[in-house]
């Protein structure tokens, strides 16, 4: 079910000032999978995401996305590559001066030359796909609830039918019901649109529900990567605490009596 690596990170070193965040980090994301990246606060999950999408320059290392080394790309090639992925930031990061429909059309306008009718129609489908009501297209981000903002942000990330979707804590700030719905939405969209997901998360429920594999960031690198079964058998102290703690128990990861 899984093919080649769509994202390949090799020997990555990053840091701020004299503080080292990643020390020789390696990671591979396979085509078509949902990879969840977990780790304690400050272990550099978001920094890793920012490095891969080119918002932060690492000190050294190699990052390959869809077969291209993102660090050595010229601006036009970069822009072409950016059109092949979509990013959902934590709180949606919608442009507050534009309506939801206009937000979705920003990448369409930037990368393609479409007529306005077609752009309106595409924006409308995306609004429907992420489960927003049709009236939402005319609303401004300030008029939306947190959950709706995330959905609208997802619609913008999906505007160009990306091959990779990056999600930065997609369920944080949502109530459990909203979070479960969002998980289901990602799962359904993946079946329909067939993309790879790189997801930074803290949410044990979403890890369990939609992730094919989980990568654990600790000690400045990926200490273990694998499916949930592997996680539960892992002996690394942080992994042990995370997947066997009281929250893991309540998320139903652990069978009673184990």
């Amino acid at each position: 079910m899984t093919g080649d690596a769509v994202i390949k990170v090799e020997d990555l070193h990053t840091g701020f000032g004299d503080h080292l965040v990643h020390d020789g980090l390696n990671l591979e994301v396979r085509k078509g999978e949902v990879l969840g990246v977990v780790g304690g606060s400050g272990t550099g999950k978001s920094v890793l995401l920012h490095c891969i999408i080119g918002l932060k320059k690492p000190w050294s290392g190699c990052i390959e996305v869809l077969g291209q080394r993102v660090l050595d790309l010229e601006p036009p090639e970069r822009s072409a590559l950016e059109a092949r992925w979509g990013v959902l930031f934590q709180d949606g990061a919608l442009f507050s001066s534009l309506t939801v429909a206009q937000n979705i059309q920003v990448p369409l306008k930037e990368h393609l030359n479409l007529n306005q009718r077609l752009m309106d129609e595409i924006a409308m489908i995306k609004i429907g796909l992420v489960g927003l009501p049709p009236e939402a297209g005319r609303l401004y981000p300030a008029e939306l609830s947190g959950g709706m903002r995330k959905r609208a942000g997802l619609a913008r990330a999906l505007a160009l039918d990306p091959e990779i979707l990056f999600l930065d804590e997609p369920t944080s700030g949502l109530d459990p019901i909203g979070a479960a719905r969002f998980d289901a939405l990602i799962e359904r969209l993946r079946k329909t649109l067939d993309f790879t997901v790189f997801m930074v998360t803290h949410d044990l429920d979403s890890l369990n529900a939609i992730c094919d594999r989980i990568a654990v960031l600790a000690d400045k690198r990926v200490v273990v990567i694998g499916d949930m079964k592997q996680m539960l058998n892992e002996r690394h102290p942080w992994v042990l605490e995370y997947f066997h703690g009281p929250r893991a128990r309540s998320a139903g990861l652990l069978k009673p009596g184990r």
């Binding site: 409308m124 609004i127 429907g128 796909l129 049709p134 297209g137 005319r138 079946k191 329909t192 067939d194």
Partner: peptide, 20 residues
């Protein structure tokens, strides 16, 4: 089949927003 899902999904979301 995978295109069928997509075509159905698009058809399901064919909703013109209410006119202003």
């Amino acid at each position: 089949p995978e295109y069928g899902i997509l075509l159905d999904e698009v058809a399901a979301n064919d909703q013109t927003p209410p006119p202003l």
